[in-house]
Nucleic acid binder design. Structure first.
Lengths: 363, 363
DNA sequence: TAAAAATTTGTGTGCGCACACAGTATTTGG
DNA sequence: CCAAATACTGTGTGCGCACACAAATTTTTA
C-alpha cells in the first residue's frame, strides 16, 4: 500500500498550508520567495505528482472539440477515424471532453469552407482537421491561429509551421509510397513496367498523393538490380465505372509491359473491378486501406497487398493527444507517424477486426 | 454543456435519497421493492452512467497485481512486455493499481517454480503470466483457480478452460507460422526446400513453438503452385555460437536445396551470424521480433522479414484488461489476438520506434 | 397494544484537488 | 508612527461517489 503523496503531505513537509502549495503548483503568484522555495524543495524530495482524478473532478469544466472530416456515408474509409474518435471519447468523457462533428462532402470545396465557418463560429477549445484540400485548409488553419485555437492534423500533413498545432497523426506518405513500390516489385521483372494510379479529382491539391507518388518513383529509380519504368496516371471520377474501364484499357494498350498497379487511394477495389471487366486478372495490385471491399479482394487473392493507414487509430490518438494537451498540459510529439502495416491474405483478419483495439480504453 | 446525470439527480427524480440510489446501484440490499422500482425507472429514463473518476476517488482502494515474466537482462525481447506494463501503469496508477514483478531465468524451471510460490504467498488480486513452460504453468494456474485469483495469459496460450482466466493476449501462433511460410515462399522455387528452426531448449514443452511449426508446414502442404519440402530442426543452446555454426553447416550439407530459413524465436540474428560464418549469405531468412540486433539485420538486408509479436502491447493490454476487469467490472474478449505485423526494411522504423505508443496513455 | 426487533431510509464524512474568500503579515506613504 | 494599501497565507466548500451510521418506518412478538 504505497501511500501516494498528496498536496497535504507537501504542505506539512514544507511547513505551509495546502493553499500555498496549490499556488506554487499552479503558479498563481502571491507566494513569498521563501515559501516557494520550501514548497519546491518538498515537491522535489517527495516526488509529488497530482492525482489527476481528483484534479479533474474539482475542475468541473467541459472542453468543446470540433472534428472536421469528410462525410462517411459514401466512403467507408472515413467512418474509421470517426469511430476512433468516438471510442476515445468513451475513455475521456468523464474528464469533460465533448466532440462535435463537422463533416463535408469529399469533393465539395464549398461545403468544406462552410463547415470551417461553422467551427469558427462555434468557439471550440481544440479542432481535429483532415486537411485534404491543401489551400483551403491552410487558410482555415490560419484563422485558427488568429483565434489561438489549438488543432491536430490527421491523415494528411500540411507541413507548415503553426504556433498552435498540437501534432500531426497519420502516415508518412512518402515512405508508404516506397513500401508500396517494394511490395509491387516482388512480382515484377527487369524491363517490365509498373503503374501508379490516383483515383481522385484534385490530385495535385492533395499533399499525401503527391508524397506517395514521389516515394514510389524514388524506390524504382534507386533499384540496383532491375530496371523498371513507372507509368503515372490519374482518373478523376472513381465512381464512373465504365469510364474507369476505358481508362485502364487505353493505358494498358499503350503500355503492354505493365505488370503491376499501385493505387494511391482506398479505391483499389474499383480498379480490380475494372481490370476484371477487361479480362486483365494477371496484374499485381497493391492498394491502401482495409475497407470491406478491399479486404474481400485480398482474401480472394485479387489484391496482393494493402497498406493500412490506421484511420481508426488516427481518430483515437487525436482525442488522446488533445486530452493530454488541454487537460494534462503535456505537449506531445509533433509528428506521430503510425506504422505502415503490410496487410495480406494471411494476416488480414488481425487488422480488420477491431475488437481488441476497443478494449484498451482507460476510462 | 451537457449536464451529466448524477446520483443526486436520480434520487430527486425517483423521490428517494441518494443513499437509496446507491444501494440499488451496488445491490447492497435493504431497499423496499417499491423504492427499487422507482430508482430503476429513473436510472433508465435519465440514462445514468456513473462518473468513474469520482467513483474511484471515493473507493480509495489499492489493487495488487503480480507479473510473472522471464528476466530481461539476457533477452531484450522480455524487456518489452515489461515496458508495456510499466507504461500502462502510468495510465492507471491513479486508480490504485500496483504491480510487482516476478522474473525468472528463461531456462530455469526451478526458478520459475520459486517465483510462482512467491506470488501465491503474496496475496495478489490478479496475476499476469507468461506460461512458457507448459506443465509447470498449468499447475500454477490451478493453484490460482483454487485461490480465486483472476489472471491474464500473455505471449503463449495454454488453451485450457479456466474459471478465473480473464483473457489471453498475444499472437495466434499457428497463423504466424503460416504467415512466415508465405513470406519465405516469395523467394523459393518449385522443388527447393525450406527449413524451420527452433532455437530453444525445451521446444516441445512450449506450446507456441509447436503451433508455429504446424502453421508453417500446413502452408506448404496446401500450396498448389509449387512443391516445396520443409526440413524441421532445432538446436538447444542458442548462446553456443560455434555449435550453432556446426549445426547449420551439417544441415545445409545434408539438404543443399534449402533456400530459406524460418526461425521461430527472436534469435534470428544468431542464425544470420552463423550463416555468415559459413559463407551462406544467399539464404532467405524470416524471423520474429523487433529486437535491436534483428532490426539492424533487416536494414542491412540480411533478414528479409520479421514478424512482430507486439510484446510491448501484450504487457500494455494485460494491465488495461485487468483494470477493466477488476475496477470497471467489464469482462473482456477472452482471446485477444494481436496483429501479425509484417516488418521489412521499408517500414521497420515505424514499428521499432515506440514514442507514439506511449502517448495514448490516458491519465 | 406496546415494546422489541427487523427493515428501510436519510444524512454526513472523506477521497484529493481547485478555487474563493477571509484572515494575517508586511510594506508604503502621509 | 499609524493608517491604508499591498502582499501573503490559511481555511472552507464543492466536485460525484462510497460507505458508515443514525433516524425513521414497518414488522414481529409477548
Amino acid at each position: 500500500m504505497t501511500q501516494r503523496i498528496r498536496i497535504k503531505d507537501i504542505a506539512q513537509k514544507a511547513g505551509v498550508s495546502p493553499g500555498t502549495v496549490d499556488r506554487v503548483l499552479h503558479e498563481r503568484g502571491n507566494v513569498s520567495a521563501k515559501a516557494r522555495a520550501k514548497v519546491k524543495e518538498a515537491l522535489q524530495s517527495l516526488d509529488y505528482s497530482p492525482n489527476v482524478l481528483a484534479s479533474i473532478l474539482a475542475y468541473n469544466k467541459n472542453w468543446k472539440i470540433a472534428a472536421l472530416l469528410p462525410r462517411d456515408d459514401h466512403d467507408q474509409f472515413w467512418s474509421q477515424p470517426k469511430e476512433g474518435i468516438l471510442n476515445a471519447l468513451k475513455a475521456v468523457k468523464d474528464y469533460g471532453i465533448i466532440v462535435d462533428f463537422f463533416q463535408f462532402y469529399e469533393n465539395d470545396l464549398k461545403d468544406f469552407h462552410h463547415q470551417c465557418n461553422l467551427i469558427l463560429e462555434g468557439q471550440y477549445e481544440a479542432v481535429i482537421i483532415t486537411p485534404i484540400f491543401t489551400e483551403q485548409s491552410l487558410s482555415f488553419l490560419e484563422c485558427l491561429e488568429l483565434n489561438n485555437t489549438p488543432f491536430v492534423q490527421i491523415n494528411t500533413l500540411l507541413n507548415t509551421e503553426f504556433e498552435h498545432q498540437i501534432c500531426y497523426i497519420g502516415q508518412d506518405s512518402y515512405h508508404s509510397g516506397k513500401l508500396g513500390a517494394k511490395l509491387l516489385a516482388f512480382g515484377v521483372e527487369d524491363g517490365q513496367k509498373v503503374m501508379i494510379t490516383h483515383l481522385e479529382e484534385l490530385v495535385y491539391n492533395s499533399q499525401h498523393l503527391i508524397d506517395k507518388e514521389q516515394g514510389f518513383k524514388d524506390f524504382f529509380s534507386a533499384l540496383p538490380s532491375k530496371s523498371i519504368e513507372v507509368v503515372t496516371s490519374h482518373f478523376a471520377n472513381p465512381y464512373h465505372q465504365s469510364g474507369l474501364r476505358q481508362f485502364f484499357k487505353a493505358q494498358l494498350e499503350e503500355h503492354p509491359e505493365i505488370k503491376g498497379i499501385f493505387v494511391t487511394t482506398s479505391r483499389g477495389f474499383r480498379v480490380v473491378k475494372a481490370l476484371d471487366e477487361i479480362k486483365r486478372q494477371d496484374l499485381k495490385v497493391v492498394g491502401f486501406d482495409l475497407i470491406d471491399e478491399n479486404v474481400q479482394l485480398l482474401i480472394d487473392e485479387k489484391i496482393d497487398f494493402l497498406i493500412n493507414q490506421n484511420p481508426y487509430k488516427q481518430g483515437y490518438l487525436a482525442i488522446i493527444n488533445i486530452f493530454n494537451f488541454l487537460i494534462r498540459k503535456i505537449s506531445p510529439v509533433s509528428h506521430q507517424f503510425l506504422p505502415l502495416d503490410v496487410v495480406m491474405k494471411e494476416n488480414a483478419t488481425y487488422y480488420s477486426d477491431r475488437k481488441i483495439e476497443e478494449i484498451p480504453i482507460v476510462l
